[in-house]
Simulated assay, not measured.
Amino acid sequence: MDWDKLDEYAQIAIDKAVFYLPRILLALLIFWVGFKVVHKLVDLLRKALERTGFSETLRPFMASTVGVLLKGAVLFVIATVLGADLTGLFAILAAAAFAIGMALQGSLGNFASGILILTLKPFKVGDWIDVDERFGRVVEIGIFSTDVLTPGNKILIIPNSLITDSVVTNFTEKGMIRLELEVTMPYEESFPKVREILYEALGQVDHILPEPKPEVGILNFDSHNVQLIVRPYVKPDNFWEVTFKAHEAIKKAYNRNDIKVAYSEGVEIGKIGE
């Protein structure tokens, strides 16, 4: 046995232990204390977001993201204490982040838009909104998309980037919505008379708000009729119910008061080819 070699290896091991043992102990201490501090900070952040009324959907995500970043910082400090060279790792992470960003460009746009919507709160769950000619009630606001329930009981999954790039009409913000009902009257009929008939018909429809008062006016003139616009105000949840009942009440009122409308008398029937 080569005792000289053995002594040399033992001395190297002792030198390494003397060099690395304090660093390892310090790294373990940083790990233990650092993660405890991170958990405490995340709890404080979560409570602070809850007190300020921050979005319930965004609170867990924000707390989780901050927690991951702080834990990453703790691990970075530990690696530095142990003397690790992180230059290559940073280069790999930067390249990976760039590649992922390019691949998920659209999703990242939706993600950023979701953060804006949840932070700025242009609307909330339960609001009636119109986005890019899509009308419905918001049932869920997610990080990447917003679910809207249409009056036809269909769920529209709208990308958040489309919402932030479009004009959003929030009908619930003011607590009321104005209906736009178009009807006609003949040229020979008195407009003040028809206007009173329409007001009377609207008075028989439930859920029409007394204030602001409904509006009735002349919209346009066509070749056969005078086109009228009827604008009652309702709560957003009663939009379609009042629309149907108002049309029904107006038709009955026209019938009772013998108000004429023009329509085509004849129908031409032709063949349909294969």
Rank of each mutant, 00 (worst) to 15 (best):
K5D: 13
I269S: 12
G266D: 10
D130Y: 09
F19Y: 14
A112G: 01
D132I: 09
R59S: 07
E173A: 00
G106P: 00
L118K: 00
V242D: 04
A13K: 08
N153T: 03
A249Q: 10
L219A: 05
A48H: 02
S190H: 08
V205R: 02
M62A: 15
M62C: 10
V226W: 02
G53D: 02
P122F: 06
T150G: 03
L70D: 07
K5S: 04
L228T: 01
M62K: 08
P186H: 14
K154Q: 15
A79M: 15
V167T: 13
A73T: 08
V167P: 01
L45F: 07
S190T: 12
I143F: 13
L149A: 11
L162K: 02
F171M: 10
I250H: 00
K16A: 02
E50R: 14
A262L: 11
R178Y: 05
K260V: 12
S190G: 05
P151C: 06
N257P: 11
D15M: 11
N153P: 01
K124M: 11
I30L: 03
M1P: 08
K271I: 14
P232Y: 11
Y254Q: 12
M176F: 04
L69F: 11
V148P: 00
I141L: 05
T169A: 06
L29Q: 02
E50L: 06
P159D: 04
Q204T: 14
T243P: 07
T119W: 12
Y187C: 07
V261L: 15
G217A: 15
F123C: 02
L93R: 05
S107T: 15
